[in-house]
Computed example of a mutant assay.
Amino acid sequence: MVQAAAVAPVPVPVSTEVYQRLQHFYARQMQSSDDLDVPAWAGSFTEDGVFATNAFPEPITGRAAIAAHCDRAFAAQAAAGIVRRHVMTMLTAEHAAGDGERIHTRSYVMVLETRRGQKPTIYCSTLCEDVLVPVDGGWQVVRREVRRDDL
């Protein structure tokens, strides 16, 4: 007897209303990073949230560790007179069957960088994949995977 292959759950796109709420969440989150607002940016992750990227040797786990990393990175950026702007495009958002209330998103994020007295340049181009959960009428990131295209 031939055994049937396992079928992967089919993702279901979120509603237009949820998609709009996600757009607002990401606009506020990206702007908090650009504004060097550590409490707001780190606060957009769950207490046990994970930030993983191919730019770091290991993922950063936990909101406190994410905040500590951002404190150092944002301070260095400010001291160097660097302004960064995150430009998010091509956002997709789906419910994954069997994954409760979690939302899976995928987007492209271009990071522009301007040094004092210079023209803006592209710092990096990335693919960002998140798992989000609803919290108090908003969203928090459970896990973020950022893949820089240049690495």
Rank of each mutant, 00 (worst) to 15 (best):
E101F: 02
S32F: 15
A27N: 07
Q20I: 09
T46E: 14
A40N: 05
E17L: 10
N54G: 04
L112T: 07
A79C: 03
D35P: 00
C124H: 08
R115K: 13
W41A: 05
A4L: 14
I122A: 02
R72Q: 14
E113S: 06
R102C: 08
S107I: 10
A75T: 11
T16L: 12
H86R: 05
E113D: 05
Q20F: 10
R116P: 00
R85A: 11
S125Y: 13
L22H: 13
V141W: 11
G49C: 09
D130Q: 04
R148Y: 15
T46Q: 07
A76W: 07
E58H: 08
R102F: 10
V2M: 08
E101D: 14
L36C: 07
R102M: 08
I82G: 00
V50I: 14
Y123E: 09
V135I: 15
P120L: 07
P120H: 06
V131C: 02
A97T: 04
S125M: 14
I82L: 08
R106V: 04
A42D: 14
R28L: 12
S107L: 04
V141E: 01
M88L: 13
S107H: 05
T126D: 02
Q140F: 08
Q77I: 15
R115M: 06
K119D: 02
I60Y: 02
T114P: 00
H95N: 09
R106Q: 09
D34W: 11
L91E: 07
R84Q: 13
A8K: 06
A64V: 09
V109N: 00
V18E: 15
S33P: 00
M110V: 14
T16G: 01
L36P: 00
M1H: 07
L151R: 15
K119Y: 12
I103E: 02
V142G: 00
P13A: 02
L91R: 03
Q29P: 00
D130H: 11
E58L: 12
R143A: 11
I60L: 06
L132K: 05
P13E: 06
H86A: 07
R115Q: 13
